[in-house]
Design a protein around this nucleic acid. Structure first.
Lengths: 233, 233
DNA sequence: CAGTGGTCTAGACCACCGG
DNA sequence: CGGTGGTCTAGACCACTGC
């Protein structure tokens, strides 16, 4: 209190964290408002705001105008999984990255993909199947549909040196998308590609990416057995 | 430009987004520094900072002191999945939430759980198996280990009205943990509990939660077939 | 309607780190 | 070294929303 130390917003945040952790402020409870905390901590209100806003984003606090700030009843509710960038993920473990395009064709996508890409009836678009490898062992099998009506250049793309994903990242400015994770059992064909047994449990990551209002690509990543997506918070 | 409109940081952020989306600022490229943008947008530097910081957190920009701000080469790299709160998830779809504690015992956990909970050799702790149901249909099967040495009160807990998770959330102030998602094939026993076929592909979410330096609980959620975790960005 | 968080400003100093 | 982002401040006005 008598300290003349400059308070950083991080220091304030840590302090508040301790209060919550020590249950001095209990779940569901109202905590003092910003102006008061600013006084207590001996800093500007903006600094308190910065600290509390961060905690609210992390889910530890719930804030509403006029109603004040409360300790969240259910903390740790959101976790940010970093979407793997295959090449980086493989190379960061010291393994050798590789990939092979299995299939490249124009085709009318199945209904679910049509819906995800907002395509009309009979549009043929680019369909790719690619296997990514780590030290030559199957890592992830990618099934990708690219809206080649929105991105006609892709038809001339050469995927020998640049994977479909890397090509798209270079050529298109994504600005959003959605992700789904689920679990499936390997079909006979998938097992053959991933060099595992049919019926093994695999993690699936599906992603749809758009640029503005254009849906660009829908991709399904089928990871090798034992693959885990992990995060910490 | 001639507008006297008050610029909010959101407006600045949208503007920058458009620049990136339209590839006026290309991936990897350096963008003007904060002071200059503040001039261009007719606002304070703090406002620009707020806008750009948000974009950097979202992964769209990369910022370094002295080096300046660049458009990220690989945007959309992280997606925040919200960790499901079973009861809310079920009730939000209008279904009836229920659960049943199958097993409650003291037991020495398997080595992987011992490691995750930082337990020494032969400590017996609380082991629970619970099935959560939506409209009486199996929704998720939970296998949970609770460090009853750190939280002795749990031994007297009554899980008739409050699920293990809800009890813990009420009694313990979590402040961190880690999450893993993966895919598995249902064993015969798991299939029986979840009323599905052995070998079906299932999503698994594993979570370890701590309070300060104490590891409190390790839980494995095995979701019913067809369950998907979804997020948008 | 009044209290609370949300935001903007102008100015300042600092930490980092590229050249 | 000097340029850039990171942060703090004091004060102000505003937007939302519970009472």
């Amino acid at each position: 209190m008598t300290e003349a130390d400059r308070k950083t917003w991080q220091a304030v945040q840590d302090e508040v964290r301790r209060y919550i952790s020590a249950r001095i402020w209990k779940p569901g409870e109202l905590i003092p408002h910003e102006a008061e905390l600013a006084l207590q901590f001996g800093c500007a209100r903006a600094t308190v705001n910065r600290a509390l806003r961060g905690l609210a984003e992390a889910g530890l606090l719930e804030r509403r105008r006029k109603a004040g700030t409360r300790v969240a009843l259910n903390p740790v509710r959101r976790a940010a999984f970093s979407i793997p960038i295959i090449r980086e993920e493989i190379e960061s473990t010291g393994q050798r990255y590789g990939y092979k395009v299995f299939l490249r064709e124009m085709r009318v996508p199945p209904p679910d993909v049509q819906a995800r890409l907002q395509l009309s009836g009979a549009d043929k678009i680019l369909h790719l199947q690619t296997l990514y490898t780590a030290d030559n062992r199957p890592y992830v099998f990618e099934t990708r549909w690219i809206n080649s009506i929105a991105v006609p250049d892709v038809l001339n793309a050469d995927f020998d040196m640049l994977s479909p994903n890397e090509w798209l990242v270079r050529e298109v400015a994504f600005d959003g998308g959605d992700f789904t994770v689920s679990g499936v059992a390997a079909t006979r064909e998938e097992a053959a590609v991933l060099a595992c047994k049919p019926g093994e449990g695999l993690l699936v990551l599906e992603r749809t990416t758009r640029q503005g209002d254009n849906m660009i690509t829908a991709v399904r990543l089928l990871f090798h057995p034992g693959y885990r997506m992990h995060t910490r918070c």
